[in-house]
Every structure is written in C-alpha cells, then in structure tokens.
Design a protein around this nucleic acid. Sequence first.
DNA 1: GCGACAG
DNA 2: ATCTTGTCGC
Length: 231
Amino acid sequence: MVMINYNNLTIPEATVIQREMQQQVKTVTFKGPLNYIAGADISFNKFSTTVYAGIVLLEFPSLIPVGYSLVKREVLFPYVPGFLAFREIPPLLDAWEQLPVKPDILVVDGHGIAHPRRMGIASHFGVLANQATIGSAKKKLFGIYEEPAPEKGSHTPLTDKQGQLLGNVFRSKTNVKPIFVSPGHLADVPGSLDILRQCIKGYRLPEPTRLAHNAVNQFRLGAVPEGWSAL
DNA sequence: GCGACAG
DNA sequence: ATCTTGTCGC
C-alpha cells in the first residue's frame, strides 16, 4: 500500500520532492487497450479541513459509468498554487486503493506536465500509482498560448517560454471557455488530447471529470455513502 | 517591485 | 474550491 503523509511539509521541502519525482515522469505514447477510463476529483466546504475525494470508473468509449469510489479525509496541507498535489493526493490515493478495477487511463482534475517544474497533480499521481494519467484543468497555471478558435474541437499548443510543448488549450464546446489538457504520466501531448476529445459529451468538461465532480459533490452533501459502489 | 497564480 | 439569482446568448 502506498501510504504517505504530506501534512507538515514546508514548500521548500515539497519543491525538492517535485524535482526528484519529475525525473520519474514518462511522457510516452499511450499504448491501448483502452477499455476503462476514470475521473478523479475533490470537494470540500470552504474553510474546512475535511475533504471528499472520489474516482468514477467508466467504460470506454461508451463513457457509461460503472461505479465510484468515495472517501472522506482530513487534510492540513493548504492549497498553494503549484503544490496542489500535496493537498489532494493523499485522499485520492485512498479512493484509488479501494477501486476494485483500475482504469487504463485516469483523468485528474488539474494539470500534468503543464507546471512550473513539470510536476502537476496528474503527473504526481501517475508516478506514485504507476498509472497512466492525463491532466484536465479549467484554468492555466503555467505556460504560454494563443486563444483557440471559438468552434468546438479547435485547439492551440501550450508551451513554456522556450517553446517546449506542454499540452493543449482545447475548445471542448463552441463559444465556451477552453480547458487545458496535458500529459500526466505514461502518456504524451497528442495522445492526451486525442483521448480527452473522445470524452466530450456535450458539456465543457470531459465525462470522467464531470461525473467525478458530481459524485464527490453529492457525497459531501450526504446524498451518497462512502466506499465503493457499482452502478 | 509587479503581475500570475490548478483546486 | 464553494456560495448564489438573475440574466444574457445560442
């Protein structure tokens, strides 16, 4: 079991961990099969240390949800831009461990290598769980890009100041703000975009992320119980 | 010093 | 992230 405690870490210490882990990230073309995909997300009440983490498993390419894993935990590490992983990964790993079936690809709500040290939450999770992951974020954290055309499907590259490709800014829905897609671990930039575009079902957010968000939210509101549940 | 800043 | 009603546009 991957048991970790990121609580009393300082930012300098967390930075050292990111630099070491970055050496383990593998940005390679994902080789199928892709029969199951999953989405991970966190929900919490403002000013509370209690977080509700969840992972929803769905069949691919039908995107039909088949079950979800929900966990309630206490987290002390605060939200600091660039260090989201130290706050959300511990509970997410607990939800991950109680998943009866692991997906071929996990979509994490946040960035992958589109990060100051190329170590966003999706990459961090991928290395720890030795799992192929893709980062899907709603806002930019790091990088430069041109606004993609307003039509659904358009996309522009997200790069660093030196031109290194980090991901794509993807218009998942016409006339709606784009999402930021980047490889987490065991996936590459073009492949991540290709997989994610097959996860769009009429909404701005990809199904794995959208359903995970709905699940943790209902869990936080007491509508569904903790643990694993098949659908 | 100033602006940016995932969830 | 969460809170929260109406309002504007496709």
